[in-house]
Simulated assay, not measured.
Amino acid sequence: MSGLSEDFRLPVACPGCGSHLMRVSQVKNPDDVVHCASCGKAVCLWHEAQTVIRQGPGSESEALIEAAVNRRG
Rank of each mutant, 00 (worst) to 15 (best):
M1G: 15
M1C: 09
M1D: 13
M1H: 12
S2A: 12
S2R: 13
S2P: 07
S2Y: 06
G3P: 14
G3V: 03
G3D: 14
L4H: 14
L4Q: 13
S5W: 03
S5D: 12
S5T: 07
D7W: 06
F8Y: 07
R9M: 13
R9C: 06
L10R: 02
P11F: 06
P11E: 09
P11M: 06
A13H: 01
P15D: 10
P15S: 10
G16W: 01
G16P: 04
C17R: 06
G18V: 02
G18H: 03
S19P: 01
S19D: 14
S19M: 00
H20S: 10
H20M: 03
L21N: 03
L21E: 09
R23K: 14
R23G: 02
V24K: 01
S25V: 01
V27S: 12
K28F: 01
N29D: 14
N29P: 00
N29K: 13
P30R: 11
P30D: 14
D31H: 11
D32S: 12
V33W: 04
A37G: 05
S38G: 08
C39F: 02
K41M: 12
K41T: 15
K41L: 12
A42P: 10
V43N: 02
C44K: 11
C44E: 15
L45W: 03
H47D: 13
H47P: 00
E48A: 07
E48C: 01
E48M: 02
Q50C: 11
Q50M: 10
T51V: 13
T51K: 15
R54Q: 15
R54L: 11
R54G: 03
G56A: 05
G56N: 07
P57E: 11
P57N: 11
P57G: 11
G58M: 04
G58E: 15
G58D: 14
S59N: 12
E60F: 10
E60C: 05
E60R: 12
E62Y: 04
A63K: 14
A63Y: 05
L64D: 14
A67L: 04
A68T: 05
A68E: 13
V69N: 06
N70I: 00
N70L: 02
R71Q: 15
R71L: 07
R71H: 15
R72E: 12
R72D: 14
R72S: 13
